[in-house]
Nucleic acid binder design. Structure first.
Lengths: 225, 225
DNA sequence: TAGACATTTCTGGTATACAAAAACTCGTGG
DNA sequence: CCACGAGTTTTTGTATACCAGAAATGTCTA
């Protein structure tokens, strides 16, 4: 999609990883000068990288006031989860209809892996496997545009989703939901797959309260932007 | 969202308008130097503007080979319409549940306007009113993230959607479909609104063949990218 | 005449220099 | 002690200069 020079592209990837994996947290300031010396390039590619990231929404830049890792309002968070649920549901629906047999096998294997990790209660390892599970479904929808779109929203929500898994019981529940989705997809029940995925991803009711309660201060903007 | 300097922001808006309204067509080359002298600025803001547009997918830039107005493959077109239908359906579903009474009134008024213009068979004027109709529904979903996301995809499809309305009978059919959607939303029938909107936007079967038949050469990439 | 190789030219990628605006500091006055 | 303001500093936005890679062109040879 957005291909800039080689240096800038590298920076985009590195910064993106740092943001998605939580090394850089929402609200962190991204100073052009520091970044440029840290990576040993001039400010130009740094600016281009920030520009690209701003386009995908991972960072926010205010004119003449610099750029920070995007932090969102509570309203934004709710809205984005609402859209995320729909996008993932669509992926699941299409995957149930279109996924090749070999990919279903792969998905089954990943489901098993999640099962194992879930028992060991290693939240971070489970998170990895969980990401893989979902990505195989994204790919299974056979709509690369939808796949990109979904991944983009997921990346933007990553800092907040990550928090959820550290809650006791969440991993086990998540894994149980995977089983249902897996079954629906492997039997080709598109609507059921969509419905289950929607429920799996949506954050509503008490789950929303729980999430908001554990979001560290600074991850969310005050109402006055 | 992506705020850069003032000059760059202006350029983004101007270029975006030119692309969406069809002044610049898919495949057109966007030479940095020409643009910079045409707008009387240096190459830097031009590059930043192109960068931003590349982020939203309206232009494509290949390293060392310059940037062009994004042209997509047939597969991309199909994929994007598939997602577009789902996003607009979601907007309609939420709008049916959430729209304030006064906004429903506005929508009814716009529906009437479309009716009038449809009778005069002025495709361009109808296109305008049609855009407004849809935008009121976007706003009615009360999810600004979804609204932005939907508008973004719509903009990317604009060059291709525009073509459809110049087909005989399409305007009348489109307008009839609006009536159904309008009715579903004003009576709060969310699922019906979603379903009708999905059908309204989706391009499938013969409609897809028709669209592909009238897309000018150059609007679509050959398979070998 | 056709094809391949070399050269040239053009365009994009990067670095640096300069200008302008915001943030910070420090001092003064209430 | 706090508030306010002028001057300094920091940081972003823009312009320009330089470099490198790719396409185009021209020439030489088979």
């Amino acid at each position: 999609m957005a291909r800039n020079g080689k240096l800038a592209t590298d920076l985009v990837q590195k910064l993106e990883r740092d943001i998605v994996t939580g090394v850089l947290k929402p609200g962190d300031k991204l100073d052009e000068r520091s970044l440029s010396e840290r990576f040993g390039v001039s400010r130009t590619p740094v600016r281009e990288a920030l520009q690209t990231l701003a386009g995908s929404g991972l960072v926010a830049t205010m004119p003449r006031r610099g750029t920070i890792v995007a932090s969102i309002t509570v309203a934004d968070l709710i809205e984005m989860f609402e859209v995320m649920a729909e996008l993932e549901a669509m992926c699941a629906r299409l995957a149930a209809r279109r996924m090749a047999r070999v990919d279903v096998e792969k998905l089954l294997a990943l489901g098993g892996e999640c099962d194992k990790l879930q028992e060991h209660a290693d939240a971070d390892a489970y998170y990895e496997a969980n990401v893989n599970f979902h990505e195989v479904i994204y790919a299974g929808c056979r709509n690369s545009f939808l796949e990109r779109q979904t991944k983009n929203v997921r990346n933007r929500l990553a800092p907040y989703r990550r928090l959820q898994l550290h809650r006791p019981g969440r991993v086990k529940k998540s894994n149980a939901e995977h089983a249902g989705i897996l079954e629906a997809i492997s039997t080709g029940d598109a609507e059921r797959a969509a419905k289950l995925m929607h429920q799996h991803v949506a954050v509503q009711g008490e789950a929303l309260n729980d999430l908001l309660a554990i979001v560290p201060r600074g991850y969310l903007e005050p109402l006055a932007s």
